[in-house]
């Protein structure tokens, strides 16, 4: 058992348990806590899967941003009795059963697929150079540079021949997402601004 396997096992368990705890716990604040655990473990998994940039972003945005936002929201709205809003046990049981069913289904689906064969078939059919699976382990990290290039419209991971028309980068989606974020910020600010209640 090498280190990778150890970390993988560790992160796997903490992520799954964190998620379960989110489901199980009744207090919103606790939920937020467990969520942090879960998301953080996931970020670890990302690192293990050579997606260090994504993992970093996960930590930054989710753990550092979104969850803080959530906690703020909890605090803004948790006035007394409303922190805990009980759900009826029947509902919980029903949801649990359906959830299990769903889980079983998804697992059954994914284990039924021959991932190796599918991958090679895709590679044959698409007649492209398969990625070598290992990114350049340069000083700038595994994925930082390729992702940055992609977001600027280039695909260095596909080789020179393929960097023509078909495999363009993600410049346009990147821009769209940027604008989207801006719009969302404005919208959120608009929605969340304090209004005088009509009734009051």
């Amino acid at each position: 058992m090498n280190g990778e396997a150890v970390f993988f096992t560790l992160f796997t368990v903490s992520a799954c348990l964190g998620a379960l705890a989110v489901v199980v716990s009744q207090n919103v604040v606790r939920m937020a806590f467990w969520l942090i655990i879960c998301l953080g473990s996931t970020a670890g998994l990302f690192f293990l899967a050579d997606a260090d940039f994504v993992g970093a972003v996960q930590l930054l945005i989710y753990v550092g941003g979104t969850l803080v936002l959530l906690v703020f929201a909890v605090m803004l709205t948790s006035s007394g009795p409303y922190v805990k809003i009980e759900t009826s046990p029947g509902e919980v049981i029903l949801a649990g059963m359906i959830g299990l069913l769903f889980l079983f289904m998804v697992i059954a689906a994914q284990t039924g697929i021959d991932w190796e064969g599918t991958g090679s078939r895709i590679a044959e059919a698409s007649e492209i150079d398969p990625p070598d699976g290992t990114f350049d382990t340069g000083a700038e990290g595994h994925t930082l540079r390729p992702i940055g290039m992609s977001l600027l419209g280039l695909r260095p991971d596909r080789g020179a021949a393929a960097s023509g028309t078909l495999f363009t980068g993600y410049l346009l989606p990147f821009e769209i997402v940027s604008v989207h974020l801006l719009v969302v910020l404005v919208g959120a600010a608009y929605l969340a601004r304090a209004k005088r209640r009509r009734e009051a």
Binding site: E91, L94, A95, I98, G99, L101, F102, M105, A108, A109
Partner: peptide, 20 residues
């Protein structure tokens, strides 16, 4: 809202069941 989520899930499950 929550029931809707349930419906979606049940729907997906049912769809999967049918497909399988």
């Amino acid at each position: 809202l929550r029931q809707y989520v349930m419906f979606i899930v049940v729907g997906v499950v049912a769809l999967f069941a049918v497909l399988f």
